[in-house]
Amino acid sequence: MGKQRGIEILVGLFMATGFVALFFLAMQVSNLSAAVNSEGYRLTARFSNVGSLKARSPVSMAGVRVGRVEDVSFDKETYEAVVTIRIDPGVDTIPDDTFANVFTAGLLGEQYVSLEPGGSPEYLRDGDEIAHTQSALILEQMIGQFLFSKAGGE
């Protein structure tokens, strides 16, 4: 029976090591620690074009991440993109005249939502909509406009 017990102890150790490794992957390697989804509050914003913005793209203020995109959907009435944003619970002082932009990190980088605070004393609360938005800059459109204006100028 001593042998059986030794095996059981080692198997227990093996399972514990395996779960520690999984825990390490979950908390230290992946975004699980950052994306505890049920916390914080939800805002929506409408854009005429979100580019390649996706769920879990970062939302930042002054370059610091304050939340994540939870969902991107299409409103078939207004032909706009409806972006649902989850803001971290500590950040509860976003003015209600805040401006939301879809920016690109670097020339070819990932797209993210940048919030630029206005001056209103009223703060946005759970379920509110961000009224002022500016759509993503699409590289092809910009090049197209640039060429067009060049051509028009001559």
């Binding site: 999984l22 992957l25 230290q28 992946s30 975004n31 699980l32």
Partner: peptide, 19 residues
């Protein structure tokens, strides 16, 4: 090293799928 890893590796898509 760690923060980039955490922002890009997703728990559901990467870790759970790997398991």
């Amino acid at each position: 090293f760690w923060s980039q890893m955490q922002s890009k590796v997703d728990f559901h898509e990467d870790i759970v799928n790997g398991v």
